[in-house]
Design a protein around this nucleic acid. Structure first.
Lengths: 217, 217, 217, 217
DNA sequence: TATGAATGAGCGTTCATTCAT
DNA sequence: CATGAATGAACGCTCATTCAT
């Protein structure tokens, strides 16, 4: 998938002097994260117990707490990874003599976001459907995340209005509409449908066409 | 609010031969449902305990189970009420010589849905944010609900296409986009903002404008 | 036993309008307290688990938490009862024209304290031997308790010095010596020996004789 | 401090044929014991974890178990050291034509015990406050220790009585009173007060004066 | 000898549900 | 009908101990 960056932290062991132990530890950790991702994705946060996690990862209870501080912490880590990656895909629309056409910029961002979500289907499921109601902190974190994306869309719409690209409208309502379209389409395609049978390219093009017609002059 | 129907089931005791006891029972039940709605809305499903419910309803533990099978059941009932009411607001776009203009029909449906959600802000909060991840059955039920709405939109889009009102597009993707816009705008307006300070009329108009521009020819 | 007051709270249900349920609850609670007293006394705080408590009291886990907030709370309650009762037995030595002879006052206090400890042998075991090191709060509470008794003895010694009854000495050291004598003798008699075969009267007389010779002129 | 002997076991490797490895092992062990002494003293037995010990000793988990059988075992060893040393300070009162005056003998014993406790303030803290309630075995061991000291005092009192030095009294009660005075004064001075600002000489003299007046004719 | 990752029994606590009164 | 005391399975988490390297 184009432009999507890996979520696994690259770490600082690229200097060649990595201890075998460190690498082993990381791979073990990653294995637990992997099964946790699947189970959280399938059952949600509350319905997933530490027992589920360690049974599937085939490790002992204590081992889990060797790698992760708490159930909440592993869930955080899983989600934070995607949120960070996702945020990196969203770029503010630049406007200027040598900037690409705004439409192309939006296009590129949507492409990147879709690719990232596809590459992280399981976490997308959690981010889009399950991550609400875990606790107040978590809700705020999610709210902030979507709030930042919303702010970017609003800013893009305002910029677009100034250069006569965007029709007169309430940027707040339209921004939330756009955000909602993306969230729902992605959830439907990657979470409820079989993601492997989805033509993401096509989906992206259709979505952008709909969104652009909705707000352009 | 126009067009919004009450969520309390009308029942079949309106024939005049209702026992006083039965009526008492229903009013007790309704009272519990009312406080449950508020508490679930404020704290979410998992953070709400039976203790919270019976304390606020001022009934004994056992009494609760006299009226409701389980915590899950009362939550189900609460949500089913809104889902049913909501579904009643969504009407298939009729096409024919003496049918209103399709655009007006869509307009009316969106108006009715928004009004219903506003009148049931508390449950809307739950439906849009907290109802996911409770268990697999519940997720499926929600999925079905949105699926039915989606099917209606798809059908409307197809109808619209046939009469040349809707531009050529993938109705599936566009339908989900529309659904997502509505869900996100409503959640943002009713859940994250103060619903009383939201100009729903304006919001509705802006949303519909965006949606229609997105799919009309 | 003379002057020893019961540790079970008298409550406010002496007006005759006691509900049967309330009385039942209290008796159940008292039963749990009783077995907890025995087990804490035998095994100490840390070695006693909730499992031990509920098994011996023959109640379910949840039932325990119906009556007590936590393991810590039941232990506190057990100990606070004795500490309060004990404190009520210790009276400052009064000096004046119509006050009893100071020696008799000391005598009476020691008698009362010994009787109370005898009547609460099991808790005495905990208070004198096990109650240290549970947590910082508890340590401070105990320290305060003994500190107050110590202060009383110091004050008594100073008073005694003024009226020429007590020999010149460092009241701090002598007070701690006296306190230590009492603690050790009581622990030895009630905790390590079979308390039923101890002649408390004799023990008290011997102890007071020793203490008085140690500090009187 | 006069008369106080070191707690580290002298061992039998002083014959010159000690392997370097053996000596290394012992010094490593001693280092762990040293930090364990400090930590147990500061936090108590239960609040001290193996993690605390190995972190401060800067050794690996497994290494700890190379030197000590268990957490319980190292605590035992620490306490046994002090107990053995303390026991060596307590000498039976000798009576005979060329024995020192019994009073001086008692004086000397108390002096030695106080000095030993001062030199091992940290362990004294444990012995007097934290060592109780760890488990039944440990309680019995402590009980035995104090029992032996008690027996010595009883024997001394009996000897004193025979030579007319000690007043008629119940040696058991008086012995426990003496023991208790020493325990309490030491705990108060070394554990609750700042041991460095305590005038031990003065404290000793005051204590002995009190004790002797309490039992001499 | 030294390591530290792995273990799992056990902890205190919660809470939806039941049932005798 | 109404009650609320009683239940016990299940939870997330800790930590002394083991053992392969």
């Amino acid at each position: 998938m184009v432009n999507s960056t890996p979520m696994v932290p690259v770490g600082n062991e690229l200097d060649g002097r990595v201890s075998r132990a460190r690498r082993l530890r990381e791979s073990r950790r990653a294995a637990v994260l992997k099964v946790a991702r699947q189970i959280f994705s399938r059952k949600g946060y509350h319905a997933t117990s530490i027992h589920d996690l360690i049974e599937s990862a085939d490790i002992a209870r204590g081992t889990f707490y060797l790698y992760f501080e708490s159930k909440r912490a592993i869930f955080d880590e899983l989600l934070d990874g995607l949120v960070t990656t996702l945020q990196a895909q969203v770029r503010r629309i630049e406007v200027g003599p040598d900037a690409p056409a705004p439409v192309d910029q939006l296009n590129a961002t949507v492409d990147r976001v879709l690719a990232t979500l596809f590459d992280n289907r399981e976490m997308a499921r959690i981010l889009l459907r399950e991550a609400v109601g875990i606790d107040t902190d978590f809700d705020r974190k999610l709210s902030d995340f979507y709030g930042r994306i919303d702010a970017m869309i609003v800013s893009a719409l305002n910029t677009g209005r100034q250069i006569g690209l965007v029709r007169p409208c309430d940027p707040q309502v339209v921004a939330r509409s756009i955000l909602g379209s993306i969230k729902e389409v992605v959830q439907w395609a990657f979470v409820e449908q079989d993601p492997m049978h989805t033509d993401i390219k096509h989906m992206g093009r259709e979505m952008i066409a709909y969104i652009l017609r909705g707000c352009l002059t």
